[in-house]
Design a binder for these strands. Sequence first.
DNA 1: TGGTATGATTGCGC
DNA 2: GCGCAATCATACCA
Length: 417
Amino acid sequence: MDEQTRMLAGLTPLGALPQADVGESDPVRKQQQQQQQQPLGQPQQDIGDILQQIMAITDESLDEAQARCWPAEAPMRWAAPDDPALGGGAGGGTAGAALPLDFQHRKHALNCHRMKPALFSVLCEIKEKTVLSIRGVQEEDPPDPQIMRLDNMLLAEGVSGPEKGGGSAAAAAAAAAAGGSPNDGSIEHSDYRAKLAQIRQIYHSELEKYEQACSEFTNHVMNLLREQSRTRPISPKEIERMVAIIHRKFSSIQMQLKQSTCEAVMILRSRFLDARWAYLCVRLCARVHVLACIQLLTLPSVHRLRRKRRNFNKQATEVLNEYFYSHLSNPYPSEEAKEELAKKCGITVSQVSNWFGNKRIRYKKNIGKFQEEANLYAVKTAVDAANVSAQASQANSPATPNSGGYPAPCYTPDGRL
DNA sequence: TGGTATGATTGCGC
DNA sequence: GCGCAATCATACCA
């Protein structure tokens, strides 16, 4: 009601109009009405009439309307859903399907009022100028790059778009790369194609369901809004915005489906490409769409695939061991130290973390076994420290105490090193 | 070819 | 988010 009052107050020609009589129970309004009472011209009288009708409808709660329109003892008369004169039928939407005749008559009278289009237009305009109709709505945003990448990927794999042998080109390349000659890979090839066809079928079936649900829901909401636009200012533009919001929501659901499908294809591909799957994926994708695959390779779920293990090179292991044994009392490198070690070793920070995690636990489990290794690095570090010390003495600077020795491992009460 | 070493992953607790 | 502990998977070697 506050919004209505605000909107009406903003209407210059309507500003002088009496407030609609919404009932004797509201003394404040009644007083205002009495204060503002003045002779009305015909147009103002018309607007006053229609406002009264609108407010009488919109002010009533559902219970009040029900109590007034179909009291318990009165026999109920229902409008035929297809009675266009009473707001039923196709144009009436779901809300007009089965309402009491009294209510339908009032709605019909309101809809047929000659001033209704003009007032509707003015109210829509006011609403448009306020934030009421654009709450939570963002204007046309550009196509989501993530969806574009997924679409490109699915298209390249032959999952979406016209069927062209179920990604036979990719399958042939995969089989050839994994097994050598195309003949060698023929069984895997057909198997790959069959499984890809399954994925394709599931994808299209799910996509169809989403599209159908989206269409049904959109129609439902549009019908509701059209029906409501008979009694409150809802412009076609606002309905369009609502439809856009619905499509955006469904689009995000669709993206999840596409992501899952891409993951399924990648997992299938990984089985056929075996050891070289990641490398070949990138190579294959370079031909079709680099970005799509790079994006997919970074998807968390794809990461869950166990990566091919490669031992670190000797130099990297030495660097890591040196750090570990020279910080044996506290072998927990900081984030900066990890980054530095990763750079030195040519590995990632998470690999450094893994390495230290493994090293700590394995050292703790079998200190005796690692003692020899610890001694080895102790000597190496001691030599290095001596060299540094000698250089420092030459430069007449005080030698800095070095932690290079290998203190006995120190464990915290909770078992940490 | 089997045993061992080792990098990666997972589940849990903090 | 980090670390621990257990486990997995695979590289490496005798």
